[in-house]
Computed example of a mutant assay.
Amino acid sequence: HGEPSSLLWGHCEPNDDCFLFILGADVNTQTCDGVTALHEASKNGHTEIAALLLTKNADANKPTSSGLLPLHIAAQYGHDKIVSLLVSVTSRAMLRHSWISPLHLAAEHNRHTVAAVLLKTGADVNATLPHSHSIKYADRRTTALYFAIANGSTETAEALLNAGASLSLDPVSPLLMAVRQGCVSTVSLLLERGANVNASIPTCTTTFPALVALCQNNLPLLKCLLDNGCDALSCFTCAYGKSFSKR
């Protein structure tokens, strides 16, 4: 008991390995939250220690109590070199059964270099969150692309689109999120890739890109939408009819 060992927390120096392993430290020891030394090294960006742990048979497929593998942690914290180390030793089956993919976490935290590594090594660009977790978000987001756009990362969004990310897997159009964010560069990117300039929320037909931009008084964004053929007349048309507007 007492203080956690430096090995458990992934804080040891690489030249400490002989001392630690002579003492018989178990590289796969887990805390009550399921965290291992490899999780901690992945979180803190200790590439040499992560590599050392792997040579000592650290298990890259031990999840935390929240279901995250070391690869998830490295992706979340933006450590692309550790991600490269872990990809080949992480079970694809374990990743498929996780509630979120490392690519989602990279997109959510604007880690575009990590996203590039994951995509290059075969990550599914169109993997979606399970319904049980998607419903925790008001917009029911499901894709890494939507996560990237919601967090203002045009660079990550472009990498995902270049890898074949679909624009039609989320209940709410990624374009609507980009418009809500007020990001002209992301909106332009999505329109170039075929996003529907007049996309609306099925349950709220009065929410569409041009109207959102108009309500924000974002004239550069509105001009971008108009230049790409949005239906400007809809901004001045009541979807509920004249009788509703007279009440």
Rank of each mutant, 00 (worst) to 15 (best):
P70E: 04
S42I: 07
Y77G: 04
V87Q: 07
N110R: 12
L103N: 07
T64I: 10
S101N: 06
T90V: 05
A74L: 04
A60K: 02
A116Y: 02
A115T: 01
S91L: 01
A60G: 01
P63K: 09
W99H: 12
H79Q: 04
L52I: 15
V117F: 00
H104R: 08
L68C: 15
D59H: 13
I100P: 00
T55C: 06
L86W: 04
S84K: 08
N110W: 09
M94S: 14
A74I: 01
A75N: 10
A58L: 03
L95P: 02
A75P: 08
D80R: 04
L71R: 11
A107R: 10
H104P: 04
A50F: 13
N57T: 14
K62C: 14
V87R: 06
H112K: 07
G67D: 00
V117K: 02
N61R: 06
A115F: 06
H46P: 09
L68R: 13
E48C: 13
L95A: 06
A58C: 02
S66L: 11
K43E: 00
L105Q: 08
H109K: 08
G67A: 00
N110S: 13
P70I: 03
N110G: 03
P63Y: 09
L68F: 15
L53C: 14
W99L: 08
R96S: 15
L71N: 11
S42C: 10
K62P: 08
H79G: 05
L68K: 10
K81W: 05
R96Y: 14
H72S: 10
A74E: 02
A74R: 03
K81C: 14
S84R: 09
L86A: 05
S84Y: 08
T55K: 13
S91Q: 01
A58F: 05
P63F: 09
A115E: 05
D80M: 06
A115I: 11
S65N: 12
L53Q: 15
V83I: 11
D80H: 06
S101V: 07
G45D: 04
H79A: 02
L95G: 01
T90F: 10
S88E: 12
L53E: 15
P102C: 12
A58E: 07
A115W: 04
P102N: 09
D80A: 04
T64N: 14
D80T: 02
H72G: 13
D59G: 13
A93L: 08
N110H: 10
H97I: 09
N110M: 07
H112A: 03
N61G: 12
L118Y: 00
S101A: 15
W99R: 11
N57L: 14
T47Y: 12
L85Q: 06
K81R: 13
K56F: 10
S84W: 01
V117Q: 04
K43G: 00
A51R: 12
Y77P: 06
V83S: 06
V87E: 06
I73V: 14
L103M: 08
G78D: 03
R96C: 15
M94F: 15
L54V: 13
A115S: 11
A60E: 08
L118R: 00
S65A: 15
T113C: 02
S101M: 12
L105S: 11
G67E: 00
G45Y: 05
L118N: 00
